[in-house]
Amino acid sequence: MTATMYQPSRKRAASTTRMLKALAFLTPAAVMILVFVFYPVLRTVQLGFQNFNLFDQLNIGYNGLQNFRNLINDPNFGTVIKNTFLWVFVSVFFQFTIGFGLALLMKTKFKFIGIYQGLIFIPWALSGFLMGLVWKWIFDESFGVLNDALLKLGIIDSRIPWLSDARWGMAAVIIANVWYGVTFFVIMILAALQGVPKEMLEAAELDGANRFQTLFSVIIPYIRATLILIVLLRIMWITNFPDLIFGMTQGGPAGRTHIISSWLIEKLTLDADWGAASALGLMTMVILFVFTLFYLMATRLEKDSGV
């Protein structure tokens, strides 16, 4: 940043007019953000500690930690937390690994690479909810193409109850999520790979390093900070991505494929319990915040990136 080049003590008056001008440009955006982003956060904090049920509007008022107690004592709570961890970490693991592999394969240009990229990047632009419906149809037990193909190939000999059994259900939504999210990693990692200086790669080659040595001792260390950051951002994003599940299982059967964010949507819409939904949202924020701190400490990101 150029902040160090700027000396605030030079001319106070000039700096004030400059600030006013900058503020004039910034105000419209800032107002929108204050009203539509930061105010709702404050309101959520308030709602999280209130009895706020649309079916019980006469009794709206503060109820301390009751919403949080209710959530933790809910019989589904343990399943939801476990599912959230599975959903986030299994998805990110496969998205990252596949995305990294594909990015390496696409690093050197080949014929039709433009068309190829255009086509395989498509999932990024699609609605998670609509794609959830598509996958619901593919995973359908009786009429789904997946069971049909697996039967015809002789891989299974009886139909798998993909979406009516909780375990298969989690596997199904995670497969769909891997499909959905690989694109993001390919785009980001491809961009990072293109930033690795050619001289470094040539030098490694001159030193007699093979491809794996180049990958692990030159390329990965060079883009490490980017990798750490995009994995973190993706973990946060996937935690708050209920769209696919909402399309595929709606959390069913019996709430056994809910993750924390799809459960929040159910509290908000089906149960109309906005206090509980807000409390759940606050819990998510706190969990993600604590996770981020540990993650950054564990990866020592700031050391590498010099932030």
């Binding site: 709702p40 309101r43 706020f52 964010s261 949202g281 998510t284």
Partner: peptide, 14 residues
Amino acid sequence: MIPGLISLAPLYLL
């Protein structure tokens, strides 16, 4: 860093 989902109820009230 703010999950958009937590704004749903407050935005409705607003």
